[in-house]
Structures are given as structure tokens and as C-alpha cells.
Write a protein that binds this DNA or RNA. Structure first.
Lengths: 113, 113
DNA sequence: ACAACGTACAACTGATTGGTTGTATGTTGG
DNA sequence: CCAACATACAACCAATCAGTTGTACGTTGT
């Protein structure tokens, strides 16, 4: 894993580590929403929501397209999948550990061959 | 999703949003390691690594057990899976969007029924 | 017994975060 | 044309973060 990849993964997990951003992501995965339409759902200021959208965008979890004076945000499911893939990698490492433990137990129970 | 759940998920993603912590998690998923054995792999101070381990522990991604003067850390794959499950939920929401779009296209192509 | 080891924790620092308000710029409807 | 709308961005603030050093305390091997 090189430096760039690590930074990208940092950004992905960081973006997901905030409940407001996760909620925004839910909405934009379900369909396009303008930034102000998203902002209407939260107590905080418009600017705060706009920043959250920007964090998600920098992480690649959503993209924006202009439509007149609105900016429509849309979730990118591929980015979500890349996170899932990374976690699957971790799980695979764990599986290797279990396999090693099983092998040890096996060797213990039948020490000769 | 209630407050507690949200906090737990916050902690999980936050813990994963640091490359040193992800590397530590990789190692402890592969097998038990003492905190100082882990610390030996990084340039930073022992205390810094100890803090990273504590963050992972608070998030539930690893557990420690004492063995003499050492503290052995072990990765918890169930916590990793809970993150995967949460991402699968997001992907499911996205799938619903596609289904809706398909339905619209369908209705468009065959407007009577 | 005691020096070295493994760990925990407090206090400090600089950087980053999540939030605010205010200002500027482009867009649209009447 | 112009008022209202949608967005962007800068400056600021309090809180948190990732790192440091220093101190304290239990454990172990000789």
C-alpha cells in the first residue's frame, strides 16, 4: 500500500466518521439532492452542511453536477465498495490466522505423518 | 439508528481513519502482539503507539489480555464485520435508487398498462 | 535484591476539526 | 431590472487529535 492509497483510504474513513456526513451520504446514494435541500434536514448552518458535502466530495464518496443555480450531489457507490473491499482484506488476514491456528491444532493431534 | 449506535459507528470509522491504526489492526488480526512488539514497527514513540492501540480498543476493534508484564492485543473480526454490514446497508440504499430509476424508464417506454 | 522491561498516564504542543458569521458571486422569476 | 435564491469561501473559535516527554508502577531474569 503506497502513500497515495493510504491518503485516499484515510480520507474515506475520515469522511465516514461523522454521523451527519453518513446521513448525507445515505440521502445522496438514494438520489440526487441539491446542497440546500440537504441542508434543510439539519439544525446546523447551511455553510456547515456545505463543508460536510465538500468532505464527502474530496473523499470521492459523492460527485456534484451543476443544474442552473443548484448543485446536485449524487453518491458514488463505487467508493463505498472500495471501503468494503479494504475491510474484506482485513477479514482475509484474520482468516489466515485461524487457518494457522487450525494447522497447529491439527499438528498437535496427529504429530506423526 | 439511535445515539449510542451512531457514537459507536463514529468511533469505528474514526479508529480506521489513520494508517498507523489500520496497520496495527492488520497485525493484531493476524495474531496476538504485545504493545511494545507493535511499537517496534513504527518510528513514533512507544506512548504514541500505545494511544493508537487504546483508540482501537475503545472502538472495539481489538481486545487486550494480560500475560505477565506484557499486554497482548488481538483483533476482533466481528467489529470489522459490523462496519462491513453498515456499508452494505448504504449499498442497499443505492440499489433502491437504481430500482426506482429502472421503474421510471420502464414506465417511460411502456406508458400504458 | 535490583536493573531492565512493559505498560499506563499526565501534561504539553501544533495541527486539524466542526461549527459559526459574514461577504461575494452567479442564477432565476416576476 | 432586481430581489430572492443557491452556492462558495474566508476568518474566526472551541474542541479534539496525534504526537512528544516525563513520571510512576508492576513484573521478570539474573
Amino acid at each position: 500500500m503506497n502513500e497515495e492509497d493510504a491518503e485516499r483510504v484515510d480520507a474515506l474513513f475520515h469522511a465516514l466518521a461523522d454521523r451527519t456526513r453518513r446521513d448525507i451520504l445515505r440521502r445522496v446514494l438514494a438520489g440526487e439532492h441539491s446542497v440546500s435541500a440537504l441542508a434543510a434536514n439539519y439544525e446546523m448552518s447551511f455553510a456547515a452542511v456545505q463543508k460536510h458535502v465538500a468532505v464527502l466530495e474530496r473523499a470521492g464518496l459523492l460527485t456534484k453536477r451543476r443544474s442552473g443555480r443548484e448543485q446536485l450531489a449524487s453518491g458514488d457507490v463505487e467508493a463505498v465498495r472500495s471501503v468494503t473491499a479494504m475491510l474484506a482484506g482485513l477479514e482475509q488476514i484474520w482468516r489466515g490466522r485461524i487457518t494457522r491456528i487450525d494447522a497447529l491444532l491439527e499438528a498437535d493431534l496427529s504429530p506423526e505423518e
